[in-house]
Amino acid sequence: MSDEKLRAIFPNLLNTPYVITSEKDKKYNCIAWAAGDNAKWWWPLPEDNYWPNEAQAGNTMRTFADTFGEMGYDICEHGGLEPGYEKVALYTIDKAPTHMARQLPTGDWTSKCGQLEDISHLLEGIEGDGYGSVALFMKRPNLDFS
């Protein structure tokens, strides 16, 4: 059922590789997962959600860029794998943020799909009506890289 539901939401998964890597979990969302948190729901809407800097509330790309900037990320041009760096990708629909994915050491990406499962996937695998398309890449030095 999970695969069927995911492929219905993200038709590109029919033609691109992906793997379900967790159970469904309502405690955290894609932004939290991209930031390495699996215990909270992140969104710059402070009344009901966690956001590291509540002064940066607002559903804009700038808010996400600034907040992840404070976590050491800088905007970069592409999502290709760069040794020594970890990257995140921000998806938008009409410039409104919808989703973030985090790059894996393999160059694939990992996403927490709302309340659904984590999946590893290609960037284009989840592009479409559900999340829109990637509008922003950011990277920071991978402190674990050796």
């Binding site: 539901k5 729901w41 969104w43 559903n59 919808t98 989703h99 709302g114 309340q115 659904l116």
Partner: peptide, 10 residues
């Protein structure tokens, strides 16, 4: 319809 969404607005 919203299980896959993260944005509270959506």
């Amino acid at each position: 319809d919203t299980a896959h969404l993260s944005s509270p607005f959506d």
